[in-house]
């Protein structure tokens, strides 16, 4: 990316100062547009990981907008340095959230959905959580296939596939069902850090997180309590933790 000459730099700097004062969306557009080259450059650095450039460029552009919004021109930091950090963070988060999910083969996705039912049936029959060998036998596939399907199914994006099938995020009923357990969470310091993050989760996700990690219930106990499948509990836990991680870093 060609660096700006001194005059252009000065001009942009003035725009930043102006934008900080007025928050004028037109100035914001000018600033974003002026730095799209940086977004493009960074998107290309992440290009060899199997994601189309257009998608990455879009993610990088969102990062750029965030950077423009948050940049403080009175500090002794170049905008490009600041923005590089923000945009790279956004791109990394994109990959982390997507994981391999997008590329999970259809057969694994189907197997995953089938396993959900088998786990429920076997857990009931056996009176305990089934082993992988038992699942493989019942599904008539190899243990490796079971493990791969479980891995693929956990991934973040995939969760949208079947989350509508059970009354997901049924907030009101659930909150009533669980009472006011939020207060038991962590000590004051932990609460202070965590509560804004937890607020981003749905009531159901929050409740499951709490029951598992603070209430000491197992995944299957939570499943019974909430009347959803154990697989669903597991997936919601994974999703919540992923969300919490990505928020606490940026």
């Amino acid at each position: 990316m060609p660096p700006f000459d001194a005059e252009r730099k000065k001009e942009l700097r003035n725009y930043f100062i102006e934008f900080q004062k007025q928050r004028d969306p037109r100035i914001r557009d000018i600033l974003v547009e002026a730095h799209l080259g940086l977004a493009d450059h960074l998107a290309r650095r992440f290009a060899n990981r199997g994601e189309p450039h257009d998608d990455l460029f879009q993610v990088a552009s969102l990062g750029l907008i965030k950077a423009v919004d948050r940049f403080d021109p009175t500090r002794e930091v170049e905008f490009s340095t600041y923005a590089t950090h923000t945009i790279a963070g956004e791109l990394k988060r994109h990959f982390r959230d997507k994981g391999w999910a997008v590329r999970a083969p259809r057969r694994l996705q189907e197997l995953y959905l089938r396993l959900g039912k088998i786990i429920a049936i076997l857990s009931q029959d056996l009176g305990r959580s089934p082993t992988i060998a038992e699942l493989a036998k019942e599904a008539e596939v190899s243990e490796e296939a079971v493990l791969e399907a479980l891995e693929a199914g956990q991934a973040y994006r995939f969760t949208s596939l079947d989350s509508t099938s059970s009354n997901d995020d049924n907030g009101i009923g659930l909150a009533a069902q669980l009472g006011e357990e939020d207060h038991e969470l962590l000590d004051a310091e932990g609460r202070a850090t965590l509560s804004p993050l937890l607020a981003e989760l749905s009531p159901r996700e929050r409740a499951i997180l709490q029951l598992r990690f603070f209430g000491g219930l197992t995944q299957s106990e939570i499943a019974t309590k909430l009347g959803i499948s154990q697989m669903h509990v597991s997936r919601l836990l994974t999703r919540s933790l992923t969300k919490l991680r990505s928020q606490s870093e940026i």
């Binding site: 493990l147 479980l150 995944q219 299957s220 597991s234």
Partner: peptide, 20 residues
């Protein structure tokens, strides 16, 4: 991790915990 745990006959539930 899950492959090895499955070899030890860990249950589905224990394996999900391990992966997390």
């Amino acid at each position: 991790a899950s492959g090895l745990a499955s070899r030890l006959n860990f249950t589905y539930e224990a394996i999900e915990d391990l992966r997390l």
